[in-house]
Simulated assay, not measured.
Amino acid sequence: MSTPVLSAERLAASYSYAAYRQLIDALQAEGKTTGPQQSELLTNYTRLNVQRMQRLDKTVQLLPELQEALARLTKPYIWLIITEGWCGDAAQIVPVLEAVAKASAGKITTHYVLRDENLDLIDQYLTAGGRSIPKLVVLAVDTLAEAAQWGPRPAPAQAMFLNLKSQNLPFEEFSTQLHGWYAKDKTQSTQRELVELLHTLQ
């Protein structure tokens, strides 16, 4: 029997996308962000992330091959997404995940949880020993067992991230280059990797 990644009760306590966005907006209004660490810097990152998500919510267009992969899904899945409001990569990726779910004709439902409130979950999905987010865990509806996983970022962005990290650049320069890559890529790499993930679920 497959082991559930989390309990049904815990899943029920997760956020919808709308509730996740509302939480971030409410915290922003108080000069705060998600998670236990609070600083002006993190609040400023979150403000930028809200703008990124708003833009992507309006502009993401799914690739034909992604739409085709969705159409071939034969059973429903739950997408559990581990994220935080201050995370720049999450802001670039979460709207894409939500757009895919919305285009799935009810086959995919999304549930959002905050990393720092669910360390036992993220610790099952470490990236090179780190709690990198966002992390997508695909769950079987009947068992809540893992069917697939993806994240924290598409392979070209991950390679760039590791390269920039190795250069010990100031964070502002590091962030500018990484988000510049996302802007040029226009969600294409993320979408193509999600096509591959969906093919594993056929």
Rank of each mutant, 00 (worst) to 15 (best):
M1F: 12
S2M: 10
S7I: 04
A13I: 14
S14V: 03
S14G: 02
Y15Q: 08
Y15V: 00
Y17C: 09
Y20H: 10
D25C: 06
L27H: 06
Q28V: 04
G31M: 13
T33I: 09
T33S: 09
G35F: 12
G35D: 07
Q38G: 12
S39L: 12
E40Q: 13
E40V: 05
L41A: 13
N44E: 10
R47K: 13
R47C: 06
L48K: 02
L48C: 10
R55Y: 13
L56H: 08
T59K: 05
V60Q: 04
V60E: 03
L62E: 07
L63D: 09
L63T: 05
P64E: 06
E65H: 11
Q67T: 12
A69N: 07
L70P: 00
A71P: 04
L73Q: 14
I82K: 11
W86L: 02
A90C: 14
Q92T: 03
L97Q: 04
A101S: 10
I108G: 08
H111N: 05
H111S: 07
Y112G: 04
R115G: 00
R115P: 01
R115H: 05
D116G: 00
L121N: 01
L126M: 07
G129K: 12
G129L: 11
R131A: 05
P134L: 01
D142F: 01
E146I: 08
E146F: 07
G151V: 05
P152I: 09
P154Y: 14
A159T: 09
A159M: 14
K165R: 15
K165F: 14
N168V: 00
P170C: 03
E172H: 07
S175R: 11
T176Y: 11
T176E: 13
T176F: 11
T176M: 13
Q177K: 15
W181D: 02
A183P: 01
K186P: 03
T187V: 15
T190W: 09
L197Q: 02
L197F: 06
Q202P: 01
Q202C: 12
